[in-house]
Design a protein around this nucleic acid. Structure first.
Length: 494
RNA sequence: GGCCCGUUCGUCUAGCGGUUAGGACACCGCCCUCUCAAGGCGGAGAUCACGGGUUCGAAUCCCGUACGGGCUACCA
C-alpha cells in the first residue's frame, strides 16, 4: 500500500470526552503511531445547538491527559485545515457542486410535514425504505428554476439507478454488504445550507485524505451511504474499521446513569491516566490474550486492527480499580508524594510550603498509603489523622475497642512506655509496644487495636508503629491520654 | 416493519477443524501479618446462546431460531 496512513478522531463537542470516545481516540492514535502515519483531530461541530467551546477544550484536555498527541488539528496546525467543521462551510458548498455536476445530488422541496405523512403511510403498509424520491422526478430545469426563485429546499444524494449493493471490507468485521434498495436518498445539505453529518464527514475525510476511518459501531449502517458520497465525489474509499460499543454494567449503552462517563471525571476520582489508557486499550483489543499490563509505548509498537474484538464490552470498574492500584504502586515514593501533595493541600491539611519542608516525612508516609489504595481520592481520609489537631474517634470503633475490657489500663501503660523510649521511631516504638501484651496478660491484638483507635481514630489505618512515628511523640502521647480519659468517662468501672 | 452487527467462566478476553477450552479482574481458601492492604500459593467458576447441518472430528465452517445492539432524522 503506497498511500500514506492518515487517521482521524472526529468528536462532536456536544459533551466532554467520554469513555467510548476516548477508546476510539486511543485506537486511532495507536494505529497512526504504529504505522508511522498521521493522527488528525477534527472537531465535528455541525450541531450548533449542542456544541460549545468549553466542550472542545475539555476534549483537548482529556486527550492530553491520556497522553495522546495529534499531528494535525486544533492547536496543532496542519495543511488540511481548518479542523472545525463550522469553519468549512465553503468546502461543503464546493463539494456539493461536484456532486451536482456528477448528477448525484438533487434539490428536494418536500416539507418536513409532507415527509412525515409519507413515512407514516409507508410504515403502516409494511416496509419503509426511505424517501420516496418524489423530487428526483422533477425536471432538472424546473428544479433549478424553483431553486433560483428562492423556494426552500434541501439537497439529497441520488442513489445510482441500477445499483444493487454497496459492499466494503471492514478491517474488524470482514466483508460487509448492503442491498442498495435499502439505502435512502438522504439529505446532504439542509434548508439552511448547513451540511448533515453523513455528508460533512465524508467531504472532510476525502479532502483530508483519511486512509483509515476507525470509529464506533453505531456508524456501521451509515457506511454504505457514505461510500456513495465518496464515489460521487470521485474519491477513493478509505478503509473502515468499526469498533464495538462500550456498555454499562447492566449491558445497556453507557450513560450518565452508570456513574462517571467522562474521562475527566475519572481523573477527578483519582484514576491515573496510565491506568485508564491501559484499561481502555484492552477493552476490545488484546495483544495476545495474556498480557494485562500495557503501556502507551507498547500500544504504539503492537497495535493492530485485526486484534480488535467485534463484540460489545461491559465496563468493569473493579478491574479498572485493580489496575489503577497497580499503577499507583508503580509510582514510587517520589512520584506518589508528587501526586499526594496537591490533594493534601486541596483538603486543607497542609500547604505547599509545609509539604516541601517536611519532604523526608512525606517520603516516609508515601509507601504506607500507596500500598493500600486503589484510587488517589482515598488518600485524604486515610492520612487525615496525621494532620488534624483534634482527633475525632469513630463511635463504632470506640464502642468496639475502647469500651471493651481494660482499655484504659492498656492505654496508660502504652503511654508510659512510649514516653520513656529515647528515640520516637518505628523500631523502638515497636519494641516497646510488643512487650506490653505479655506484661498485661492480654493478646497482642488487644493492645495494638486500642492504641490504633486512640491514635488514628479508626480500627483500620496504616501500620501502627510507623503511624506513631509520623505523628510524633507529643501528639501520640496526648491522644493516648485523651483516649484513656475518655474511656474512664464513658465506661466507669465498678 | 426493513437493513445490518453481535453472542466463549459474573466481567474483559485467548482460541481461527483435533487443547484437560488458556489468562486477567472479581469471588473463596491457605500463608504472611499490629488493622487494612500489598504479596505468595491454591480453588471454584464456560454443556463455547439454542437447533440443525458439513466433516473421521466443530467453540472454530454453513443455515436457521432466540436474545441483545445499531441504522432507518433537515442528530451526530
Amino acid at each position: 500500500m503506497s498511500t500514506p496512513v492518515r487517521v482521524r478522531f472526529a468528536p462532536s463537542p456536544t459533551g466532554h470526552l467520554h469513555i467510548g470516545g476516548a477508546r476510539t481516540a486511543i485506537y486511532n492514535w495507536a494505529l497512526a503511531r504504529h504505522l508511522g502515519g498521521t493522527f488528525v483531530l477534527r472537531i465535528d461541530d455541525t450541531d450548533p445547538e449542542r456544541s460549545t467551546d468549553e466542550n472542545v477544550l475539555a476534549i483537548l484536555r482529556g486527550l492530553r491527559w491520556l497522553g495522546l498527541d495529534w499531528d494535525e488539528g486544533p492547536e496543532a496546525d496542519g495543511a488540511f485545515g481548518p479542523y472545525f467543521q463550522t469553519q468549512r462551510a465553503d468546502t461543503y458548498l464546493a463539494a456539493l457542486k461536484t456532486m451536482k455536476a456528477a448528477g448525484r445530488a438533487y434539490p428536494c422541496f418536500c416539507t418536513t410535514e409532507q415527509l412525515e405523512v409519507k413515512r407514516d403511510a409507508m410504515r403502516a403498509k409494511g416496509g419503509y425504505a426511505g424517501y420516496d424520491r418524489t423530487c428526483r422526478a422533477i425536471d432538472p430545469a424546473t428544479a433549478a428554476a424553483r431553486v433560483a426563485a428562492g423556494e426552500p429546499h434541501v439537497w439529497r444524494l441520488s442513489v445510482p439507478e441500477g445499483r444493487t449493493e454497496v459492499a466494503f471490507d471492514d478491517a474488524i468485521r470482514g466483508h460487509m454488504s448492503f442491498p442498495a434498495d435499502a439505502l435512502d436518498d438522504f439529505v446532504l445539505v439542509r434548508t439552511d445550507g448547513t451540511p448533515t453529518y453523513n455528508y460533512a464527514t465524508v467531504v472532510d475525510d476525502a479532502l483530508m485524505e483519511i486512509s483509515h476511518v476507525v470509529r464506533g459501531d453505531d456508524h456501521l449502517s451509515n457506511t454504505p451511504r457514505q461510500i456513495l458520497v465518496f464515489e460521487a465525489l470521485g474519491h477513493e474509499v478509505p478503509i473502515f474499521a468499526h469498533l464495538p460499543m462500550i456498555l454499562g454494567a447492566d449491558g445497556k449503552r453507557l450513560s450518565k446513569r452508570h456513574g462517571a462517563t467522562s474521562v475527566e471525571a475519572y481523573r477527578d476520582e483519582g484514576y491515573l491516566p496510565e491506568a485508564v489508557l491501559n484499561y481502555l486499550a484492552l477493552l476490545g483489543w488484546s495483544l495476545d490474550g495474556e498480557t494485562t499490563m500495557i503501556t502507551r509505548d507498547m500500544l504504539r509498537e503492537s497495535f493492530s486492527l485485526d486484534r480488535v474484538s467485534s463484540n460489545p464490552a461491559i465496563l468493569d470498574t473493579d478491574k479498572l480499580d485493580w489496575m489503577n492500584g497497580v499503577y499507583i504502586r508503580e509510582l514510587g515514593v517520589d512520584g506518589f508524594v508528587e501526586r499526594m501533595t496537591p490533594l493534601l493541600v486541596e483538603a486543607g491539611l497542609t500547604t505547599v510550603e509545609e509539604a516541601a519542608a517536611k519532604r523526608a516525612w512525606m517520603l516516609k508516609l508515601a509507601p504506607l498509603v500507596s500500598e493500600r489504595i486503589k484510587r488517589l481520592d482515598e488518600i485524604v481520609p486515610m492520612v487525615r489523622f496525621l494532620f488534624v489537631e483534634d482527633l475525632e474517634i469513630d463511635p463504632t470503633a470506640f464502642a468496639k475497642v475502647l469500651k471493651a475490657g481494660n482499655a484504659a489500663e492498656v492505654l496508660t501503660a502504652a503511654r508510659g512506655l512510649l514516653a520513656a523510649i529515647p528515640a520516637f521511631e518505628t523500631t523502638p516504638i515497636e519494641e516497646a509496644l510488643r512487650a506490653l501484651p505479655e506484661q498485661l496478660g492480654v493478646k497482642a491484638k488487644v493492645v495494638f487495636q486500642a492504641v490504633r483507635v486512640a491514635v488514628t481514630g479508626t480500627t483500620v489505618s496504616p501500620p501502627l508503629f510507623e503511624s506513631l512515628e509520623l505523628l510524633g511523640r507529643e501528639k501520640s502521647l496526648a491522644r493516648l491520654d485523651a483516649a484513656a480519659a475518655g474511656v474512664d468517662e464513658a465506661a466507669p468501672r465498678p
